[in-house]
Each structure stands twice: as C-alpha cells, then as structure tokens.
Design a binder for these strands. Structure first.
Length: 481
DNA sequence: TTTTGAGTTGTTCGA
DNA sequence: GTCGAACAACTCAAA
C-alpha cells in the first residue's frame, strides 16, 4: 500500500484540502508540520502569530487524533525533516499545498528536485487562493496593478466548489513528534515580553471549527450591515476571519461558496456580501502583486519612494507603538493591537497614515510592528497595505490623502465608545472632546480626571503642522522624479 | 498606436 | 451646516 507524506503549512485544515484529498485516495497518510524559521529570512513568524499557530496546531492535532492519526511536529529545515521522515517511513509520495510567500518557491523547488529522481512522487496543489497568481490577467497578458479591473476580471472566472473533508487512513507513525510546548510559541514563554496573550483564548477560537464558527456567525446577521458597519470600530460588523485565513483554517473557496449560498437565502444582502467578498479579492490582489514584485515587503513598489525624506524619530515610533501619541483614535488602535493581537481595519488605516505621514516614520517600521503584533499578519496583505497607505504601493492612496485623526474619530466613533474602551483614562470626557482632549476647557478636562501630560499625553505633533510637513516631504520626491 | 476614462477607504476651503 | 471643487499628475487598462 502507498504512503503519502502531507506537509501542512498555512493550510491547517482537513476540509477543502486538495493535497490531502489526493493523498487519502492513494493510500495511507502521514501528516507533518515543520516549523522552519530559517527559510523566510527576516520574516520569520511574529510573536502574536506564534501564539495562534500553537493553538491551531493543537486543534489540527486533535482532529487528526480523533481519526486515529498523529500529527508529526518538527522544527528545522523543511527538506531535511522530509528526508528524515521519508526514509524512516518509506513513504513514496510527498504532497502539499502551494504557498505564495516570496520564499516558498525555493523550498518547494528544493523538495521537488531532491525527491523527483528517487522514486518519491512530489506533487503541489493549489488551495490557498481563489485564483493562482498569473491566472487573472489583463487583455495584454500581464498582471493587474489596479484593484478594480483586477477584481472585475477575477469575477468572470469560475471558482471551484470546496472539497469535503476526506476519509483518511492515517498511517501508523514510526517517526517521533516533538513536544509543542518546547517550541515556546506562547508569548509568556518568551522572557522578552510580559503576559501578553493572557485572555486571548477568550476572544479567539483558533482552528478549523473556530474558523467555520466565525464565518457562520458573520453570515448569519452582521454581514447585512457590512457596507457601512465595517467602518465603525466599536461595533462587530466585520468577519474577523483574517487570522483563520492566514493559517488556512478555512480556504477562500469555502468563504466564497458560503457567501454565494447566503446571497441565495438573503438576496437583499447581495451588495453587502459582494462588498465583503471584495475584501477576499484584496487578499488575492496582494498575492498576485507580491508574485509580480517579490521585494514588496522590503522595498517600495514605486522606485521614486526610495528617496523619500523619512524622519524616523525613535521617540515618535515608540510613542506610536505604545499608544501614547496623544491622538485618542490612534492610541486606542495601537492598544487594541497590543492587547488583542488585532486591530479594526478602519483604525489600521488611521494609525498607518499617522505613522507614515504625520510622523514621517518609514512604513517598514509599521510593517515590522504589525508583523510582530498581529495574529493575522500576512506577508502579502501587510506589505501591500503599508505601501498602499504610504503611497509607494500599487494603486496607492494619493499623497495628499492624509487622514485627520480627529475628524476620522468623530466620523467613525462619534460617541467615543471605541476610544474609551481602549483608553479608559478618557472615559469621563464628554464625547465632544474625546477625540481632541487638548481642545477641552481646563475645567472639563479636570473634572473628567484627565491630566494632559500626566495620565494622558499631549499630542506629540500638531495635526496641521504635521500634515503640511507630509505634503512638503512628498514634494521632494515629486521634484526628484 | 492612440486615446480615453478611471483610480478602496480623504481633507480642506470657500461659497 | 452643507456642498462642490481642488488637491497633481500619472499610470493603468481597455476601447
């Protein structure tokens, strides 16, 4: 009987897993996960993501154990681990889902080159995107650089129905598995950071079941309000699927299929659902951009931004990271990120605009911080989105689009509910001043228990001055090019 | 080849 | 307080 090693990476699920389904059809299956921190250069998995990874692996391991199998956990070089497990088990095939990180192709090629001449069949399957990079093309056969035409073209292509979870004959494993606890994936096991993830398990449910639960709960009702509600950070009108998608606990095809079903049962929600699906479209778009330009995480997509006059003040960066800028909506977002591993999308744009435009700190610093703090940190979405805000990316925000953190707060958090949740020291301020405490009369501030510069910072930059500074900085590269 | 219309998420100013 | 125009010019994608 044939034995296939299935290498799990960011596809930690059993449903809609073409590689696993194909492996199950040909014989017994050895499921393996390799934590390979060396393969990805400077972009090894961030702290928050590691916590999720551990939970997700526990979940996958339990599901496999229920079927009588055992998920093999290893650390190290993927190829070395596979050679070891293959020689111990005598497996005659290695199957996996294709990954799209800039460094993945090299690993996949190495596996193929090593085993293909030795009678071990190596096969790579799609499954992490709706459409493979290179399959959505312009009339002249090139990749899109603008989202709208990209998504219009993508919508014309068929999306296959998701596969069911296959019946798998898990192999009796002779190889040993490492102890997941020894991987020190929890933040509290890393002495550099304090009790960081405490309470996360109350907010999130990593794993395939949790992913399906999140999708169903979202499509049940909140999606009806998605078009406008997604901009209100105090409310739960977004799907919060991103960390599940990042680890492949659910595939975009499954999201697609469920959303299409929901349109049939609730036709009046069609436009809201399509708006939600466009966000899945952005994920696709980012992956095809990074396929086009694999330096996206490290270098500006638009060349002229290489000469942008960043300020890069260490003090400003620290204030931003710790949620102490004196702009309540910015601080609330940065504290939500630190405390929950997540930040509402509207607020992500506000804090990113503030860092790159008000503070003139390089977008790479923001990208790095998000990479470490976000549970959903995704190499393509993170890089493309930071570049989009900074103006150096594809289809980027025009340089003069500088979010006003006061106006954004008033517009999208009119009651100050979100701000007060994450900046409790401002809880007693009247809503009129909650987004600009420094404008409140001294009596009002005092009776709210706020002491600017003491228990909440003065604004670290003046909005109007900083805005002009950003416009001037963009003037510099405009002249240069 | 040339032309034309359009481009995720905004702000400010002046009428 | 509300509304439309200006903010620049460029690149992209399709006709």
């Amino acid at each position: 009987m044939s034995t296939t090693i299935v290498l799990f990476r960011q596809d930690l699920r059993l449903h809609d897993h073409p590689a696993l389904t194909a492996a199950a059809q040909r014989g017994s299956v050895i499921p393996v996960f390799v934590l390979d921190d060396m393969a990805c250069g400077d972009w090894s998995m961030g702290g928050a993501s590691r916590w999720w990874l551990k939970q997700s692996l526990l979940s996958l391991g339990r599901t496999i154990a229920q079927g009588g199998g055992k998920l093999l956990l290893r650390r190290g070089d993927t190829l070395t681990v596979l050679k070891d497990i293959q020689s111990q088990s005598g497996a005659d095939a290695i199957y996996f889902s294709r990954q799209y990180q800039p460094w993945s192709a090299g690993t996949e090629k190495a596996i193929n080159d090593t085993f293909s001449g030795s009678g071990v069949e190596v096969k790579r399957y799609p499954g992490t995107l709706l459409h493979e990079p290179g399959s959505v093309l312009t009339g002249s056969g090139t990749g899109f650089k603008v989202f709208t035409p990209f998504w219009r073209a993508a919508l014309k292509l068929p999306v296959a129905m998701p596969l069911p979870s296959p019946t798998v004959n898990w192999a009796d494993s002779i190889s040993s598995s490492e102890d997941l606890d020894a991987w020190l994936l929890d933040p509290e096991e890393d002495s550099r950071v304090p009790d960081w993830a405490k309470g996360w398990e109350n907010i999130w449910k990593p794993g395939e079941d949790g992913a399906h639960g999140a999708l169903e709960a979202f499509l049940e009702a909140p999606v009806a309000h998605y078009s406008e509600g997604r901009d209100i950070p105090a409310r739960r009108y977004t799907s919060r699927l991103s960390p599940h998608l990042k680890f492949g606990e659910i595939s975009p095809r499954q999201v697609w299929a469920s959303a299409q079903q929901r349109k049939l049962s609730a036709p009046e929600w069609t436009s809201a659902i399509d708006k939600f699906l466009a966000e899945i479209g952005w994920r696709e778009f980012c992956y095809q951009l990074i396929d086009l330009f694999d330096a996206m995480p490290d270098r500006p997509f638009k060349d002229q931004f290489a000469g942008f006059p960043w300020d890069n003040s260490e003090a400003h960066l620290k204030a931003w990271q710790s949620g102490m800028t004196g702009y309540p909506i910015v601080d609330a977002g940065m504290r939500e990120l630190w405390q929950t591993g997540f930040m509402h999308n509207r607020v992500r744009m506000i804090v990113a605009s503030f860092l790159t435009k008000h503070l003139l700190v390089h977008w790479l610093e923001g990208e790095r911080w998000f990479w470490d703090c976000l549970l959903d940190a995704d190499i393509a979405s993170n890089a493309c989105s930071w570049q989009w805000v900074a103006g150096s990316g594809a289809d980027a925000a025009p340089y003069f689009r500088i979010f006003n953190p006061i106006a954004q707060g008033q517009k999208f958090d009119p009651e100050g509910e979100y701000v007060k949740r994450w900046c409790p020291e401002l809880a007693e301020l009247p809503k009129k001043f909650v987004h600009a405490p420094w404008e409140a009369p001294p009596m009002t501030v005092a009776s709210a228990g706020v002491e600017l510069g003491k228990n909440y910072p003065e604004p670290i930059v003046d909005h109007k001055t900083a805005r002009q500074g950003a416009l001037d900085a963009y003037e510099v590269i405009k002249k240069a090019s």
